[in-house]
Write a protein that binds this DNA or RNA. Structure first.
Lengths: 244, 244
DNA sequence: AAGTGGTCTAGACCACTAA
DNA sequence: TAGTGGTCTAGACCACTTC
């Protein structure tokens, strides 16, 4: 085994054993060089990993601090693309029923968690598995007014609206918030989806953010309870590990 | 800006521009040293990040290869603990109503997605925010028969059952599957939770895995639609900063 | 002013790969 | 056998923090 990996392991074991209290100062690079009789480069290579694992924090001018005894665990869900948020195939078709600008009054503003009075471009319609099949859900898409120009692209269909916005306005989605709740299926939607009015339904709301604190798009999907369930898997992961 | 970050950016831009075909050999460290008139250490510091981002692959003896033009994106959700799967406070109290072994016949087996005929230790009861407050949900916990001994620990209350199992049987949760669906609130639960029978409800099912392909615990929680919504946030992550 | 970690140089030897 | 990336040494200067 190479020297810096030995050092890394030695130091990791010392930390794990509790030789340093959390928050304590860790020996300086110079001290470690002397102790192990290696060059500073070798010590730094060893410390680098320990820092990545979240065991140590280094601060130029101030020193190295012990953050944790072991590489803590967490659980992660990873999606290669936002398409994974849906677990029905991406090849559903969207049949637009309404399209136009709306102002979010009290009720809608609460549903969207946006400020009352803001204006949105709204698309609403049915999503189907096959063009003449049964509806999977009723979808409402709200695009913040500044990005209303996507309306032109939308005709092309197919692609998700957030993709069109990203491309047209050179935005990059930084975060997506998803909220899942239950409600009774509203009357009009029930008719369109051919389910019992007021029957239980799943509502997923997704808010798409790009740098700003305000979302540039919000989508609502109303799924009949019998036709959809949202599933996700979370895997245990080591903190700060880099290479698979 | 420091030299190695400049180099990193320059090289990243060259790769992005398509100056090298995917799979192509990238210039050797020596060549880059000559070209930019820096020491090898500085070049290596620049290449290190590009490799972490998945743009380059380096192989001792063989050279450096171009893997991709841009750092590729994915989205991750991170939870520090499994408690984060709930977004109500961890300090809810659980009032047990039923406790005993059950055999999963057809209906239950379908609900749990387990094989018909398997036996489970079942806890069922109400979860409340305050000991005498209104119920947040009706919860059913199914523990695989081999781990039925947690029944003794359970009396202690407080801690989640999967924690007790982990401790008692030295298991480590490797994966959690969560499914969220809607349904009409069953009669008995509606009464206990003081909501309208058959009113819309959210059902979350969580299956806990540890190495085995079969879960060691499954939980079902029935939430009145008005009292609970499941929220999660997904952040964009650069490739290589997290384990996929 | 002294000490820290961050950056950088100019060398060196090694294990490994490919011709 | 020549060249690659991986490791390591022994220096150096810097920006920064702390006293």
């Amino acid at each position: 085994m190479v020297r810096y990996k030995e050092l890394r392991q030695t130091l990791a074991e010392e930390i794990a054993s509790g030789a340093y209290a959390i928050g304590d100062r860790f020996p300086t690079e110079h001290e470690l060089c002397t102790r192990f009789e290696v060059s500073r480069h070798t010590i730094r290579e060893a410390l680098r990993t320990l820092e990545e694992q979240g065991l140590l924090a280094r601060q130029a001018g101030s020193g190295t601090t012990v953050l944790a005894r072991s590489p803590g665990q967490h659980y992660t869900q990873t999606l290669d693309s936002l398409g994974g948020l849906f677990d029905y195939a991406a090849d559903t078709t969207f049949e637009s029923r309404y399209e136009g600008y709306v102002t979010a009054r009290e009720g809608l503003a609460r549903t969207l968690s946006c400020e009352a009075g803001t204006r949105w471009l709204r698309f609403a319609g049915v999503r189907r598995l096959a063009p003449d099949g049964v509806g999977v859900c009723w979808t409402e898409i709200f695009v913040a007014e500044p990005y209303g120009a996507v309306r032109d692209d939308q005709a092309a269909g197919g692609k998700p609206v957030y993709d069109l916005i990203q491309k047209r306005f050179q935005l990059q989605i930084s975060e997506v918030e998803q909220r899942v709740s239950a409600l009774a299926m509203p009357l009009e939607m029930a008719k369109t989806l051919e389910v019992e009015p007021l029957s239980p339904a799943l509502l997923t709301r997704r808010r798409y953010f790009a740098d700003s604190a305000e979302p540039f798009e919000i989508s609502l999907s109303f799924h009949p309870a019998s036709r959809y369930a949202f599933t996700q898997r979370l895997r245990r992961a080591e903190q700060g590990t880099n290479r698979p």
